[in-house]
Every structure is written in structure tokens, then in C-alpha cells.
């Protein structure tokens, strides 16, 4: 079996994470923002699984399970909010939601 340098796995996770971050920072459409958040969460999960393989521990995968749960709950609430927002404002542009301005 060929060996994979474990840094490569982590670097992949980091690159995916930063891609998600870039999406969160640049997109104005809230659906894209939510998707980018999913990417970031998934990247974290990937990092855990890589670490699990590196240390030969199953606990990393348990953490991945937790992240999965968190992502499921977050998507459920987030999509509910998106539906509510679309109902009220008839848009998916988050820049409209600036009523909390000081």
C-alpha cells in the first residue's frame, strides 16, 4: 500500500475550508452563504478523519459524526430562516437585512 503524507490530507482540508470561507465572505445570496458554511464544516470533518488515520484512533471519526449532526441541525434551522426571510422580504440578498444598524 502506498503511503500518503498526512500533511497532504490536512492541506486539502485547509484549502477546502478557505474556499468555503471565501464563499461566505463574498457571496450576497444567502443560499450560497449557507452552502459555503457547509463546505467549511465538511472541511473540518475531513481534518478530523485525517487526524484519526494519522493517530490510528477511532475518536476522530466520532468527532466527524458530531460535526455531521451539527451540520444537519444547522442546515435545518438555516433553511427555515431562509424560507422565513424570503417570505418577509421577497429576496435572498443578505445586504437587505441591515435593520440592526446602530
Amino acid at each position: 500500500m502506498d503511503a500518503i503524507p498526512y500533511e497532504h490530507g490536512l492541506i486539502l482540508a485547509a484549502v477546502l475550508f478557505v474556499c468555503g470561507l471565501l464563499g461566505v465572505l463574498t457571496r450576497r445570496n444567502i443560499v450560497f452563504v449557507l452552502m459555503s458554511l457547509e463546505i467549511m464544516l465538511n472541511a473540518c470533518g475531513l481534518a478530523f478523519v485525517v487526524a484519526s488515520a494519522r493517530w490510528q484512533h477511532a475518536e476522530g471519526q466520532i468527532m466527524y459524526l458530531m460535526i455531521l449532526t451539527l451540520a444537519a441541525a444547522e442546515v435545518a434551522v438555516g433553511l427555515g430562516l431562509i424560507i422565513q426571510m424570503y417570505r418577509r422580504f421577497h429576496t435572498v440578498d443578505i445586504s437587505v437585512l441591515n435593520e440592526m444598524k446602530g
Partner: peptide, 11 residues
């Protein structure tokens, strides 16, 4: 991440 060099032996 580039400071170590440990390869993964997937089990």
C-alpha cells in the same frame, strides 16, 4: 503543517 513529515498508513 509543513513542519512534520509523517506518512499515513491507512488502517
Amino acid at each position: 503543517m509543513l513542519t512534520h513529515d509523517v506518512t499515513l498508513a491507512p488502517v
